[in-house]
């Protein structure tokens, strides 16, 4: 276990058990395990990295090495609403920069940051596959297309009022 006091004592490692039971002996499953872990905790806490390492017979460094390679994995908790803003080619040509700027003005967050109230996290991604509706963003599982600064402000206001 980590000794630098970075640990978050609220992590319930029991939740991970079914995942490890299912996959830890199936070779090549490390990414799948991490994806499932992130589903459970919303991110990959340090304890989880250690737990996965010991269950799969890897070093924590190897697990961390895999996790940090892929953009999907996060190491900090995310807000209630995860905004995935597309920065793909089509969205770039159709003004995704302006959308990023609007989100920044409205919420004060840039790529990878979370608002202080823990409501919103912004994550810039490459192509959500809805390029003909560019610029596009996805919030949790919902996709919003043909964005304009005005539309983004309305969507954010609506989500804020919901919480």
């Amino acid at each position: 276990m980590c000794k630098c006091n970075c640990s978050d004592s609220n992590i319930d490692l029991n939740l991970l058990k079914p995942v490890l039971d299912k996959y830890s002996n199936v070779k090549g499953s490390l990414i799948t395990i991490l994806q499932n872990a992130q589903e459970i905790y919303g991110y990959l806490p340090t304890e989880v990295i250690y737990e996965v390492a010991s269950a799969t017979g890897n070093t924590p460094a190897k697990v961390m090495g895999v996790a940090t390679f892929y953009t999907q994995f996060r190491f900090k908790p995310v807000g209630k609403y995860l905004i995935m803003l597309c920065q793909g080619t089509a969205c770039h040509v159709n003004g995704s920069e302006m959308i990023a700027q609007t989100i920044n003005e409205e919420l004060g967050i840039s790529d990878g940051e979370t608002t202080d109230d823990g409501l919103f996290t912004l994550s810039c991604v490459a192509c959500l596959g809805c390029c003909s509706l560019s610029p596009v963003m996805m919030i949790n599982d919902e996709t919003y297309g043909s964005l304009t600064p005005k539309k983004v402000r309305e969507i954010i206001a609506e989500l804020k009022s919901r919480s």
Binding site: C86, Q87, G88, T89, A90, A126, C127, G129, C131
Partner: peptide
């Protein structure tokens, strides 16, 4: 994997 951003 369809990695080209702008292809779907």
């Amino acid at each position: 994997d369809e990695g080209d951003p702008g292809a779907f």
